[in-house]
Design a protein around this nucleic acid. Structure first.
Length: 438
RNA sequence: GUGGAUGUAGCUUAGUUGGUUAAAGCGCCGGUUUGUGGCACCGGAGACCGUGGGUUCGAGUCCCAUCUUCCACCCCA
């Protein structure tokens, strides 16, 4: 297939028969976040490259080898966002959100871009739902953020997903920890894989994440961050756990969770599932108390998470999570002849402004073909208009499911249809509910 | 970036040891008295067999390269 007929590698088209599922999921995300006071923020898909390279961390893979970076016509280095936190923080500083009443709670849905090799649950363009809570240092904030993610997942009906948490400390206690870690791995340097030898110098905590059998075996016995936490960090982590307990969330402490972005401090967490192939993390996040200051704002503690929408949808598909069916056409009007076509346009427009989903012929087709089409698009009712109807100002509407018919006055189509429709519609609703019960 | 699998109509596939105008089902369009869908029957459109080379008198079928898709590594959501 020619290139021009083919979507770019790692990108996905969402077709009409799938898009309603995404809309369903996104509505739940946004409305759940709102229950906790998080309001939507929209930021550009591209930023100055430094926004990411300096803040996501230039030792991370994301920055080192996965960014879509290019020069624009003005010679600026531009990067398609690989994640949203950096841009949201930039925006919050630029527009003074962090100087307003704290905490500022924002949420977002948007595309992210990473030059990776696609596989199950991993695309080059993917979409994230996320939230950021700016200006809150208490452990209660950590728990609240985690609760949002948890409530989204449970409202969607996700099963068998586990919450894993860890604390990676603050810059002070992390320094001690990294020193201890370095010493531990240096003693075993010959056994480490090549990339980990490199990591040892640049960022030893990354080794804990390595999946090579030798490294992960070494990592299992490595010093644990939790043992090196300073009193403040320890107390904070205890507080987070207590708040999670109070909220009734189950979690496991996983010292291996390190996260791949450099800005994290203290609490880090992931929601993982074994039902989507190798990419098991559906949601990941944590606290980033230093980021706002690092980006030029007043020192402001903050935290958030990102949730992969495609991964979530994949998970829901694999778990056969129920998603309500898409709605279909309420009424199809089949005109016969030119005058009837004008009448159909008039009637459809009246009914549509009453909020009904109405379709009519836009292909100039015959009656039979129109009826077939009405059936295919799942029209609940059909109505034929020809010379007779134009003259008598009355038409027959037909319930496509039951075959029942009723006469309706064209002069008063809005009210008449509402009357007929609501009655039959309620009957159908009852059927639907019973179907779900099976 | 590394590795394995894959690629024939919109979809799912058939295509025999390489041999004339590449099949089928589903879907799409139309028809079976221009006034009524689902069923049935009939007909039609639709594929330069992923792309580019090569071997051959001749390739969807063999060889090479390349791309795509899928899966895994790496990393992450």
């Amino acid at each position: 297939m020619a290139e021009i007929n083919h979507a770019i590698k790692g990108t996905n088209d969402v077709l009409p028969k799938e898009s309603y599922k995404i809309q369903f999921v996104e509505n739940i995300m946004l409305s759940t976040a709102k229950l906790y006071g998080f309001r939507e923020i929209r930021v550009p898909v591209f930023e100055h490259t430094e926004v990411f390279s300096r803040n996501v961390g230039d030792t991370t893979d994301v920055v080192q080898k996965e960014m879509y970076t290019f020069d624009d016509k003005g010679g600026r280095s531009i990067t398609l966002r690989p994640e949203l936190t950096a841009g949201v923080v930039r925006s919050s500083i630029e527009h003074g959100l962090i100087y307003d009443a704290l905490p500022q709670k924002v949420c977002y849905i948007g595309g992210c871009y990473r030059y990776e090799k696609p596989q199950a649950g991993r695309l080059r363009e993917f979409h994230q739902f996320g939230i950021e809570c700016l200006g809150a240092s208490s452990p209660a904030a950590d728990a609240e953020v985690i609760c949002v993610a948890n409530q989204v997942l449970s409202t969607l009906g996700i099963k068998k997903i586990s919450l894993q948490i860890n604390s990676i400390g603050c810059p002070i206690c992390r320094k001690n920890y990294q020193q201890a870690l370095k010493e531990y791995f240096e003693a075993n340097i010959d056994e480490l894989c090549d990339t980990c030898k490199d990591r040892l110098q640049r960022n030893p905590m990354r080794i804990l994440d390595c999946k090579s059998p030798v490294c992960s075996k070494l990592a299992a016995n490595a010093p644990k961050v939790i043992d090196f936490l300073c009193d403040d960090c320890k107390e904070h982590f205890e507080g987070v756990k207590k708040h999670l307990d109070s909220a009734g969330l189950k979690y496991t402490i996983n010292p291996q969770i390190v996260r791949g972005l450099d800005y994290y401090t203290r609490t880090v967490f992931e929601f993982v599932s074994g039902d989507i192939g190798a990419q098991s993390t559906v949601c990941g996040g944590g606290r980033y108390d230093g980021l706002v200051e690092q980006m030029g704002g007043n020192p402001t503690p903050a935290l958030g998470f990102g949730m992969g929408i495609e991964r979530l949808l994949l998970l829901m598909e694999n778990q056969e999570t129920e998603i309500p069916d898409d709605t279909t056409c309420d009424l199809y009007i089949a005109p016969m002849g030119e005058n009837a076509a004008y009448e159909a346009t008039k009637l459809s427009s009246i009914l549509r402004s009453d909020g009904f989903e109405v379709a009519t012929d836009v292909c100039g087709r015959g009656l039979k073909a129109q009826m077939k089409y009405a059936d295919k698009i799942g029209a609940k009712f059909t109505m034929v208009i020809g010379d007779n109807e134009l003259e008598s100002k009355k038409a027959i509407i037909k319930n496509m499911k039951t075959g029942d018919t009723a006469e309706i006055s064209l002069d008063n189509i809005g009210d008449e249809f509402i009357k007929t429709f609501s009655q039959t519609y309620l009957d159908n609703l009852t059927d639907t509910v019973m179907d779900f019960g099976n």
